[in-house]
Every structure is written in structure tokens, then in C-alpha cells.
Nucleic acid binder design. Structure first.
Length: 718
DNA sequence: GAGTTTGAAACT
DNA sequence: CAGTTTCAAACTC
């Protein structure tokens, strides 16, 4: 069932629409596993007494004692203390995780709304469309309601007010009008409150907004139909990730705008991802005792974690941010909401409380399943600000400093690019008549850079995987390359020397990415040079409005239809080298190419030969990789196999008893033999012989101990 | 790793 | 728009 008309679908930006080839990223959260490891041989806790005993015994006895210690250590039930120690670190983490993922979930049986108040959240709610004003309201943000976090976590029947805010998402046509995410002040119905599980909660309104002179057919659906739609399509669980967008300390730069530290309710970040139900997305907010979470709300529109997004960051000091993660797009959009709007219904009664709105998934699925846009509806999640870090939800940031807006406000208003051309750093001005909210569109890396320090700090301190949706790199299709390809082939670092990485020569810049771990010199493609970067972006857009668009357009009927948007101009490479952008993108040249001597066409024998060679090489590489992996696995298995025992069928090889302690004992024996030979002033040849004999005795002892351990083990049926 | 080749981007 | 220059990646040795 189509939720959105094809007309609407066709108008939506490709970056939003392109949901194909989205790689499902497995849930990155690595739950600490119980200690199933077995002790390493070299970790065998051989006591000093064992070795000392050996010193008092004959050399062979010493070796035997050490070997016996190793053998005993391998017996079942006896775990290496080292192993336990190592795993205990994980266990130590567990309580924190358990606390952080504590989730209070309220599920409405009728609407399917699931409200999680902390920790991992799954939000599955129907959506609604409204045809009014040709607008899509992607999200209806529930008003915040002050409630203590601990209380919320403990009370399943959490009260949530849902009236109020609407997120208007305006599509953009080709007219160059900026996309506007507008959160009107009017939507709210203060005073109306309801529980999160109320199936008859105020229906979110969705409107389709036309831009660029093209009019969209409004899509209207009732709440019931919406539920049916969602169920029929078996939408994946919409999950919410709440991350506080803590920003670096506000500095003296004009580009930075300090956000209010003491923002109470409505401080939300919702990163709603469409992912497998089995991999719940984390919802986490964290606050230092003295400070509050930055009011940020983000909405992920489909997509998976690990995507790269653009972010729209308000230039004002609004307490909320709406973040939309778009599947297939490398961008996400974050919007700060004015305090007025954010607090339309549920006002922060306690400055130290943050809230998270429940979401309702909006599925904009048109025709050929081009777009699936789950949008969450606000749902209140409350959390007491002064909360110990260990009890904080999974993705945690603290706001120990004032927020710092990452985009300069002044020059931003000049940039109003096409939505589909939005380059990193683009700023969307506030809508006329709308709230006084400005938007800065930045790549996810921007957010990553912005948050990295805090995330890293806290994540590491809490031993928590910092797997935020806004932190991960893009795994989305780019230039026609599948997500898997882009994932397997990480972006190469650039080597720019003269362009300051602010021209399209720089692949990082051209791809809308910040330079990261590059080899460039005098790089301006970073947060420290926001102004210059913005200027460069504007210049590029002035020169070519589609400069930041993928060069390889995606065909409608498969990869074979992919083609270069401009065509290549190769003259000497025959379009069979990576100089050629078509060849590099693994596509054939098309009629729009202006290449000379092109050999990159379907029937080209040169191309076929090249492809065969390439395929053969790839097969070889794969085989080698597989062989390496297998060998590595075998070696690893061999090394890790510390309990071969009888159950393995073969028994334990003697060399596995050559532990560090056994070696040391053996060496002591040999040294002792050498000493004796020296004291008795034996000839060198005789001394060498005696030492070798001693070594033989040691080996025999080791082998004997191994065999004995095997027999003992068998006798006790271990 | 240095030098060369190549073609896109930038410039005029 | 065409010609030239600049630039960084691809390629070769």
C-alpha cells in the first residue's frame, strides 16, 4: 500500500528517497558475554611454590613439577585466574549496562505505540497524513512533561503529553528554495494530556508541502488506516536513539552560539532508526549532576545506524533539535526547536529533567518502495539530571560545557541551496513567518567531530560502546556504489597540498566529508575552519549547483542503468583506467561522454579482457583472503584450545604443556647442568653432552607429564 | 618512493 | 563556451 503518491515520491530528494542498498548494520552493541573462555596455556597460574619445589628437586623433577602444574591447570573446572581477571572487566561493566539499558516500556495494543522511557527504546507507532496546505508533517513532537528519570524508569505507565508540536518537512523542487523544517507554535493543545498508551491520542498530522512550483498530491490517511498500513507492510521497528548533542565549550568565536545550559524539558534527541527489531537502538541521555542534557531532538527517517548524514543545526538557542536520518542519504537533519515551541505543552517543571518524545513511524512508501520514512512522534521520557554516569542510558553525553553551535550564523543565511544539493555546511534559514530557527546542514561527521570528544570520554569511561547513529560513518550508497562496497572500501585519505581541501579536487570535500586521518597539508576541511569551508561550499555551489550531487546517477532498472551525470572526457586512457570516472565507477561510458578512443562499452574486447582479468584477480584475492582467514582461524583455534582433553578425541599434545613455567624450569635445569659441568671442570664437549642429556630428560618429563595428564583426565572422565 | 600521466576542476 | 592552468589521483618504474 502506497502511503505517498508517486508524485510526492518523485519530488523528494534522492538522498532521502534512495533507500536501496542500505546495508543493515548489525547491532553494534556488544553485550559482554559470560566467561566462556578457557585459560591460555601461557596464562597458567603456576605458583612459585611449584617452581621452587623444582629447584629443590632434580632438574627433571622440576620440569615435571612445572609440567604437572600446567597439566593440572588445564583440567576442567580449573579456570585460569588470568582469564577470570580479564573477563571480570566485562562483568564489571555489566552492571552499568544493565542499569543504562533499563527501559520502561509502555505499549499500546491498538496503535502499536511503544514507549520506552529510558535505555533502549523501540517506538512503533502509526502515523497520520493530513492533506492540508500541501504539507507533510513528519513528526508530531509530544510535549515534554517533567518527570524524574528514575521515576519514569520505574513506572511503566508513564504519562505523556502528545499535543502540540508538528514538524513540517518541506520538500524542495528545483527552484532553489531551501527546505524548511518548520515547527510551528500552533499545533499544541496545552492542557491535554494522555498516557502514552492511549490509542486515541491526538493524531499526528502530516502534510505535504510543495516546493519549487510543483504541487504534490496530498496524501491523507486515517489513523486506523495508518496502523493497517504499518502492519501490512510489516515495518521494521522504529527505534529511537536519544543522544545529547553536547557541544564543545562555547568560545569567543562569532561562529559559536552558546546554548542555554539549563534547559529543562524538551531536551531531546531522537534518532529514530529503522532497523531490525532484534537490535534495539539505544536511547540515552546523560547529564552531569550539575548540568542538563542539551535539548535536542532528532528524528531518523529510516536508514540504519552507521549512516552518514547531514545535520541541520539551528543557529538559535532553541532547546530542541530535530534530527532526521534519511535512509540512503548521507545526511541527517537536526533541528533545534525554540524553547517556546518545545515547551508548548509539557513545560519543564524541573530544570534538571529531560524528556524524549514518543515517536510515530511515518512510512512514506511510494509505489516501488522507494522510501520508507519512519518518523517518531514525541514521547516524553524523563530523567533526573543529576544522574550517575553508570546509570545513564547507553549512548551518553554530558554537557559539562555550554553548547556550541557549529555553524556560523552570519554567512549562513546566504546559502539556500537546493535540498538535493545541500552540501556539508549549508545553512537553511528559518522559514518566513516561521519560528526563529535557523538551520545549518552539516555532514554527520560534523556531529561526529562535535560530539566525539564527549562521546569518547564518556563511552570509554563507562566501557560503553559509543555506537550512536550520528557517530558512525556512512554505509550508504554513494556514487552508485552499494553500501556494502562503500563499507568494505573505506574512503581513502586525501593528499591535497594546495587546495586546502576546500576544492572539489579533494575527494573528502567533494564527498561532503571532513578530512579525517588524511595526509593533506594546510587542510581547511575541518571544524576549525568553518567560515572558509562554508565559503568554499558556496563557491562550488555557485559554480555548479550540483557540485555535491553524486556523479553517478542510479538507474531505475538496476545497475546497468547507472551512468555518469556529466560523462567523462577521457582522451588517452581509453576509459579503461581509473582516470576515467565512468570506469572507476564500474560503469560503461554513455552517449553523454565526450571521451576519445573510448573502449569502455559493452562489446569492447579490451573491456571484456580487462574485466576478466579483474574478475580473476578478484577471485584470487578472495581465495587468498579466505585461505588467510581459515589459517588464522585455525591458528587461533589451536592457540586458544586449552582444553583439548579427551573429549576432543585426540588428546593433548605434549607441546601444549610447554608453558612459560615449564620453559623456565627447563632452562633452570639446563643452567644447573652447565653449572655442575663448570664446577667439575668438565671438558666443553662433555659439558655440552651433559646439557643435551638434561634437555632430553626435560623433554621426556614433559611428554610423560602430558601422557599422565591425559590418562588422569580419561580416568576421571573429564 | 619518486616521477609521470591523466583528466577533472578551476580559471581566464 | 572554449582554451588553459591547476590539482590530486592513478599509474609506472
Amino acid at each position: 500500500m502506497d502511503v505517498v503518491s508517486p508524485e510526492l515520491n518523485s519530488l523528494l530528494p534522492d538522498e532521502i528517497m534512495d533507500t536501496e542498498a542500505i546495508e543493515e548494520v548489525p547491532h553494534s552493541q556488544s553485550e559482554p558475554t559470560h566467561d566462556t573462555s578457557v585459560p591460555m596455556e601461557t596464562d597458567a597460574p603456576v605458583t612459585s611454590e611449584s617452581l621452587n619445589t623444582c629447584s629443590n628437586a632434580t632438574p627433571a623433577e622440576r620440569v615435571q613439577a612445572a609440567t604437572a602444574a600446567a597439566a593440572a591447570d588445564s583440567a576442567p573446572g580449573s579456570q585460569s585466574s588470568i582469564t577470570i581477571s580479564a573477563s571480570s572487566t566485562l562483568f564489571a561493566i555489566k552492571p552499568a549496562l544493565a542499569t543504562s539499558t533499563a527501559t520502561t516500556k509502555t505499549t499500546d495494543s491498538l496503535t502499536g505505540t511503544t514507549v520506552s522511557t529510558s535505555g533502549t527504546q523501540k517506538l512503533t507507532t502509526p502515523f497520520a497524513f493530513s492533506a492540508a496546505n500541501h504539507q507533510i508533517i513528519l513528526n508530531k513532537v509530544a510535549s515534554a512533561q517533567a518527570t524524574e528519570a528514575a521515576k519514569a524508569a520505574a513506572a511503566p505507565a508513564q504519562l505523556i503529553k502528545q499535543e502540540g508540536q508538528k514538524l513540517l518537512v518541506t520538500t524542495i523542487g528545483k527552484s532553489g528554495q531551501p527546505i524548511v523544517l518548520q515547527l510551528p507554535h500552533t499545533g499544541g493543545k496545552p492542557g491535554v494530556s494522555q498516557t502514552s498508551g492511549d490509542a486515541k491520542s491526538p493524531t499526528p498530522q502530516f502534510k505535504v508541502v510543495t516546493i519549487g512550483g510543483r504541487e504534490l498530491k496530498p496524501v491523507v490517511g486515517s489513523a486506523g488506516n495508518q496502523v493497517t498500513t504499518l502492519q501490512a507492510q510489516q515495518l521494521k521497528t522504529v527505534q529511537v536513539t536519544v543522544v545529547s548533542v553536547a557541544s564543545p565549550p562555547s568560545n569567543t568565536s562569532q561562529k559559536s552560539v552558546a546554548l542555554p545550559v539549563n534547559v529543562a524539558l524538551g531536551q531531546q534527541i531522537l534518532a529514530v532508526q529503522q532497523s531490525a527489531p532484534a537490535s534495539p537502538v539505544k536511547v540515552a541521555t546523560s547529564q552531569t549532576p550539575a548540568q542538563n542534557i542539551k535539548p535536542v531532538q532528532s528524528v531518523a527517517v529510516g536508514g540504519v545506524g552507521g549512516s552518514q548524514f547531514k545535520t541541520i543545526i539551528p543557529l538559535a538557542t532553541q532547546p530542541n533539535v530535530q534530527q532526521i536520518q534519511v535512509p540512503g542519504s548521507r545526511f541527517h537533519y537536526v533541528r533545534l526547536v525554540t524553547a517556546t515551541t518545545a515547551n508548548a505543552a509539557g513545560q519543564p517543571s524541573a530544570p534538571n529533567t529531560s524528556s524524549v518524545a514518543t515517536g510515530k513511524p511515518l512510512v512514506v512508501n511510494t509505489g516501488a518502495v522507494r522510501m520508507s520514512v519512519p518518523v517518531v512522534q514525541a514521547q516524553t521520557m524523563k530523567q533526573v539530571a543529576p544522574k550517575p554516569l553508570t546509570s545513564a542510558p547507553q549512548v551518553v553525553t554530558t554537557t559539562q560545557t555550554q553548547q556550541r553551535l557549529i555553524m556560523p550564523a552570519t554567512p549562513l543565511t546566504q546559502i539556500q541551496p537546493n535540498f538535493t544539493n545541500l552540501p556539508p555546511g549549508t545553512v537553511l534559514t528559518s522559514a518566513p513567518g516561521g519560528s526563529n530557527v535557523g538551520y545549518a546542514v552539516v555532514p554527520a561527521q560534523y556531529v561526529t567531530q562535535l560530539q566525539q570528544s564527549q562521546f569518547v570520554t564518556l563511552a570509554s569511561s563507562s566501557s560503553f560502546p559509543a555506537s550512536s547513529s550520528v557517530q558512525t560513518q556512512a554505509k550508504l550508497p554513494y556514487n552508485g556504489v552499494s553500501a556494502a562496497e562503500t563499507t568494505s572500501r573505506p574512503r581513502k585519505p586525501c593528499n591535497c597540498t594546495k587546495s586546502q581541501c576546500l576544492k572539489l579536487y579533494c575527494d573528502c570535500f567533494a564527498n561532503g566529508e571532513f578530512c579525517n586521518n588524511c595526509n593533506c597539508n594546510n587542510c581547511f576541511n575541518n571544524l576549525e575552519h568553518e567560515t572558509e569551508r562554508l565559503k568554499a561550499i558556496k563557491t562550488c555551489l555557485d559554480r555548479n549547483p550540483e557540485a555535491f550531487k553524486p556523479k553517478i546517477g542510479k538507474g531505475k532498472e538496476g545497475e546497468s542503468d547507472r551512468r555518469h551525470s556529466k560523462g567523462c572526457n577521457c582522451k588517452r586512457s581509453g576509459c579503461l583506467k581509473n582516470y576515467c570516472e565512468c570506469y572507476e565507477a564500474k560503469i560503461m561510458c554513455s552517449s553523454i561522454c565526450k571521451c576519445i578512443g573510448c573502449k569502455n562499452f559493452e562489446e569492447s574486447p579490451e573491456r571484456k579482457t580487462l574485466m576478466h582479468l579483474a574478475d580473476a584477480a578478484e577471485v584470487r584475492v578472495q581465495q587468498q583472503t579466505a585461505a588467510k582467514t581459515k589459517l588464522s582461524s585455525q591458528i587461533s583455534d589451536l592457540l586458544m584450545r586449552t582444553t583439548p582433553i579427551i573429549s576432543s578425541g585426540g588428546g593433548r599434545l605434549p607441546y601444549t604443556f610447554v608453558t612459560k613455567e615449564v620453559l623456565e624450569a627447563t632452562c633452570e635445569c639446563l643452567l644447573e647442568q652447565a653449572k655442575r659441568a663448570e664446577q667439575t671442570r668438565q671438558p666443553q664437549a662433555e659439558a655440552e653432552r651433559a646439557i643435551l642429556e638434561e634437555f632430553g630428560h626435560c623433554l621426556m618429563s614433559i611428554i610423560s607429564s602430558a601422557g599422565k595428564a591425559k590418562t588422569d583426565c580419561a580416568s576421571i572422565n573429564c
